[in-house]
Design a protein around this nucleic acid. Structure first.
Lengths: 140, 140
DNA sequence: ATCTAAATGAAACTAAATTTCATTTAGATG
DNA sequence: CATCTAAATGAAATTTAGTTTCATTTAGAT
């Protein structure tokens, strides 16, 4: 059940207890999380320092194990690339994040090279609003 | 030529020298700029403090004179809402920002209420890649 | 001209993220 | 298996963006 060792080997980096724990956390959480959230998540193990979390997430980003996502609060969050390309619905009331798997923007990426002579390599779309739960009991 | 007074009056806020200068800067720069960039832009006038720039941009955001945009570096930038709804091409090489006026996402906003029962009130799309200039002379 | 609530700005503070550097360790090598 | 070394770790210091505090100034109402 612990694929973290294999994954770390596959990116050609040392397998340390800390890296395994951080990778495990990212896979388990399966949503965008900040370095501090990962640190808190692992705080009961008492075996990973804050600095290491920051550094390891940066390493994972370089190695494409995670991608960085930034919402309106400007905090850097990371999510597993195993989740595949998707966008986010973010509730302005409760803060919950919902993934949208379908992406209708890829065609835009391609048309932009013609229209703007700009080669798009990645794009990020975030949609803000109010989720089902937070809209309950509101005046219509 | 100085509409800043009228604009400040129209939002029902005091017209101060500082607010006029900051608003003028935002209108002149006509692109997403950080508080510090506005401060630097006005540094030769020596008449606006850093704190005031931060506070005034926040006020302008509340009053919908500017909107906050956040790129991958997590720095808060603001741009005039006079520019209208649009998205951004950001060059990963030179950092230049190009606006895309057309928005093909509005229909997505609407379909999401049905599919996810989530009411979208705003969305942000940023496309990263390489602009014409920075791609010059590269191997094909 | 006077007055007052609001605006300003220097300095202190906060929070996220990065850097430094002494210590520890993975895993390569003999 | 023991040894060795470059890499990884983490506590503390530092940096940076942004916010708060509070004494002073000022817009604009009276």
């Amino acid at each position: 059940m612990d694929r973290t060792n294999e994954i770390l080997k596959s990116i050609g980096e040392k397998c340390t207890e800390q890296r395994r724990l951080i990778l495990k956390a990212i896979l388990e959480l399966a949503k965008p999380v900040s370095a501090d959230e990962v640190y808190e998540y692992l705080s009961d193990t008492n075996s990973v320092g804050r600095t290491t979390v920051y550094r390891t997430l940066e390493l994972f980003e370089q190695k494409k194990l995670v991608r960085r996502v930034i919402f309106r609060d400007g905090i850097m969050r990371y999510e597993s690339t195993h989740l595949g390309h998707h966008h986010h619905l973010i509730c302005l009331s409760c803060g919950k994040v919902f993934p949208i798997e379908s992406c209708t923007i890829v065609s835009l990426d391609e048309s932009i090279i013609d229209e703007f002579d700009f080669l798009v390599t990645e794009h990020f779309l975030e949609l803000y609003g109010y989720c089902k739960n937070c809209r309950k009991g509101e005046k219509k």
